[in-house]
Design a protein around this nucleic acid. Structure first.
Lengths: 189, 189
DNA sequence: AGTAGTGATGTCAGGATGTGACATCACAGT
DNA sequence: ACTGTGATGTCACATCCTGACATCACTACT
């Protein structure tokens, strides 16, 4: 007899996203998710701290992409460090994940509770990035400002990436958005 | 006989902050807050959508300060609009609220659930600001980038304001932080 | 083979959050 | 006096999330 079906975590994530799309986040219960994944409620909460978290697992790797790039970089200019971090993050969003990213984003935006968690994740990335920048010698408050700005660029570029009628790869959009931000804030008349 | 003690909302807010400080956010229940304010649990939820919200009521006014300044401004340069919005927000933080701001921030930072809500409020401000900027003729993606950047400046300046050993008024810190951001992102070699 | 872990899962009980439906009660306007 | 109206109370209830403990297949060591 088999012990238990492996990959419960992945099944739970898939079931959660499916159900959120089908009937909305508020309308789906943890029991439904667990049932569809073939496990009990208690097991759900062993894999995810709360109902929302099933949509956010894996974001640790995104943090590592950002911070890892900064730590490994040989650049010294803070802006170059930020630029490399952005470039590294593009790896998280290959073209074949575009459709999945779109539906996931739609679900998140449709529910304030999920949007809330998403923002916390982004702030976590900004803080981790600021920390890495400080370790590379960037002083405060520049490190914090640059960390947050980098995340801002990332978010705007991501929104552009998943928008209809846009077909440039993430990397292009990240670079273009950073450039736009610099222009917007550039000293001029 | 008196109908009911007026100001239930304010009493609830005060009771909530007090209890969060005394015993922590997770450790205080809605029942305790309601009891201290002299109302029932149900009444608490009529005033606030959830337990966290008791710490965030009033942030609507902050949004209005930001957006109102942009809408009333006679400036045309996007950066000037952002700068005026920041200046207007200072009104929300008079010197006499410094102590209160410190304890409230300490409570919020000590609990992820509260930090989450705080971030959502900030994003809401960024979006409202971007909208106002668009209405003043700022094109995308500049409007969104500037809206978010303005909030970033606000948050960093606020952190500096409540930090120990800092005694400059908010207005100075806002201007200085904006200047720092522009320098950090400025094109150079 | 036997035995003692180990790790993922199940079972059960229960507190806390948040909501819907309806009742009450003082006050205001007519 | 009659009729709202608005803030509050009462009750019932689904759902979320947690602690404590049991189970069961598999692994490693003897």
């Amino acid at each position: 007899m088999t012990r238990w079906a492996p990959g419960a975590r992945e099944r739970l994530q898939a079931a959660a996203l499916d159900l959120f799309v089908e009937q909305g986040y508020d309308e789906t219960t943890v029991s439904q998710i667990a049932a569809r994944a073939g496990v009990t409620d208690r097991t759900f909460f062993r894999h995810f701290a709360d109902k929302r978290e099933s949509l956010f697992a894996g974001s640790d790797r995104l943090v590592d992409l950002f911070t890892g790039a900064v730590e490994r970089s040989t650049a010294h200019d803070p802006l170059d460090l930020a630029s490399e971090a952005l470039a590294a993050s593009a790896e998280f969003f290959p073209p074949e994940r575009l459709a999945w990213s779109r539906t996931r984003t739609a679900v998140v935006l449709a529910n304030p509770a999920l949007a809330e968690r998403e923002q916390l994740k982004m702030v976590t990335i900004a803080q981790a990035l600021a920390r890495s920048l400080r370790e590379r010698g960037v002083p405060e408050p520049a490190a914090t400002l640059l960390g947050r700005s980098t995340v801002t660029v990332f978010q705007v570029a991501f929104d552009r990436w998943i928008s209809e009628g846009e077909d440039r790869p993430v990397l292009d959009l990240l670079q273009d958005t950073l450039s736009q931000l610099r222009t917007t804030l550039a000293p001029s008349a």
